[in-house]
Each structure stands twice: as C-alpha cells, then as structure tokens.
C-alpha cells in the first residue's frame, strides 16, 4: 500500500467517526445510538477490567480450538473419503446437502444437549467448519495429477508414501483455501453460540449489554469483534501464504 492510500484510508476512517458523532449528536435515535466518545469510554472501561479479557479469551479460544479440531478431522476424513471413489460417491449427496446449511440451524439441538457451555460453543464451531474442509480436501485429492501419481507408483512408492509425498502436497492449496475461509467462520460461529446459545464469551456479553440497555458497551463489543474479525482474516491469509509459498500458484504471485 502506498503512503497516500494509507493517508486517505485513515482520513476515511476519521471521517466516518466524525459522521457517527454528528448523527449521534442529533439524538434522533436517542440512547440507542451512543456517541463515539461514549463508546470509546465504555471500551476503555472494559479493556481495563479482567472480565473483558477473559471473554475475549473464551471467544478466541473456542474459535481456535474448533478450527483446529475441524481442520484435523476434516483433512483426515477428506483424504480417506477422497481416496476411494466408492466412498466419494456414497457421501456426495450428504455432503452437498450439508454444505450450504449453516451451523446456526443445529444450535437449538446442541444447546439442548450440552446447555449454554463452552463445550457447546466449541462443538458448534467444529461442525460449522468441518464440512467445507472435508469437501475441499476431497476436491484437492481428486485433483492430483494422475501422471504424477502413476510416476510415483512406477518408481515403486507405497500407498502411504504416495499419499504423503504426492497427493497431500498437491491437495495443499485446496486445504489452505479451506482453512483461510474457515478461520473467520469459526469466529462468527463462536459469537453466534454466545449470542443465541448463551455460551460464555463476547457473544453473551453482546446479548447482556443489549437486553440491559447498556448501548455504549454494546457498540464497544461490536467494535472489538470487528478488530478480532480483521485479525482472523489477516492472520489466516498470512498463514496460507507462509504455508504455501512453495506452490506454483503462489510463486507466480511473488514475482
């Protein structure tokens, strides 16, 4: 990014805060739209307390643990199912049906069984990220160059070795993309689990602030979630690039 772009972006941010202040100053929306000053004051009060940081920790922890668990399970299942055409065809309809169904749909069931706990939030996050990772891994396995696979076989590599040295590396870009897309989703589901399922963390704080009419805190939490969202998106992008810097599609980008 060039310096003048950075300057303009900062100006745009500043401008929107000023606009927010002006609209809040008209008192059209009353208490439901606190001024930026009040919001930042609430944010400052939150940041200095320990309860806030433990809520952040719970939300981020649920999102990360859910993401890691779904990545492990998704890659293993995706490689297994993707390696056998019979398994691939048998699961096709089920996976295609489940793919566009968001985890919020099963929230009532998961809350019913596990209650408003961190475990519930974690399970929901796990399910929310699992299906896309499985299908993307399967697509990657399926996409392996048959010539490379046959070459490895004629060199006498075993099944496991072919899987490790040929199939998995060629599926890596697919897996990388799946994980990059799944990371922000994990944060979203962790918030959903708190907001609607009562699981501990920032989502629950949002709900409490809204029902108590503590609007300055509500806006402060939304700001914090925006920053967390930016971090999740940015770090997953960086991670994908670090992980795949050797892959042809990324090497071209570097030049």
């Amino acid at each position: 990014m060039k310096p003048h772009q950075l300057g303009r972006g900062a100006l745009g941010l500043l401008g929107s805060i000023v606009l927010w202040q002006l609209i809040a100053g008209t008192h059209l929306a009353g208490a439901a739209l606190p001024s930026p000053l009040a919001t930042f004051a609430a944010l400052g009060a939150d940041v200095s307390g320990g309860a806030f940081w433990s809520a952040v920790g719970q939300t981020v922890g649920v999102a990360l643990l859910g993401l890691i668990a779904s990545a492990l399970a998704g890659i293993v299942l995706g490689v297994l199912v993707g390696s056998f055409p019979a398994a691939r065809y048998s699961t096709l309809a089920l996976l295609e049906f489940l793919k566009p169904v968001p985890p919020i749909v099963i929230l009532p069931l998961v809350v019913l069984i596990l209650g408003p706990t961190a475990k519930m939030a974690w399970l929901l996050t796990f399910f929310g990220c699992l299906i896309p990772i499985i299908t993307q891994t399967m697509a990657g396995v399926h996409d392996t160059d048959p010539v490379a696979r046959d070459t490895a076989r004629s060199y006498g590599l075993g099944r496991v070795e072919i899987l490790w040295r040929v199939v998995l590396p060629s599926a890596m870009p697919f897996i990388g993309t799946a994980l990059r897309v799944a990371a922000p989703v994990a944060l979203i589901v962790a918030v959903v689990a708190g907001l609607l399922g009562g699981g501990p963390g920032l989502g629950k704080n949002l709900y409490v602030a809204q029902s108590a009419g503590d609007y300055a805190s509500l806006y402060a939490y939304v700001l914090v979630l925006g920053i967390l969202g930016l971090l999740f998106i940015g770090l997953s992008r960086l991670g994908e690039r670090r992980l795949l810097h050797w892959h042809p599609s990324y090497r071209e980008e570097m030049v």
Binding site: G9, G12, L13, L195, V222, G226, G229, L230, F232
Partner: peptide, 19 residues
Amino acid sequence: YLDPVIHFFRSIPPVALVP
C-alpha cells in the same frame, strides 16, 4: 477513502449487528 471502513464492517461477525 472508504476501503478501510468497508473492510472493518465486513470483518464484524454479521450476527453481531443484529443486537
């Protein structure tokens, strides 16, 4: 001018806007 603002709003988990 607007890019950072838009990307910030995009990063907020969508359900958090409901309250």
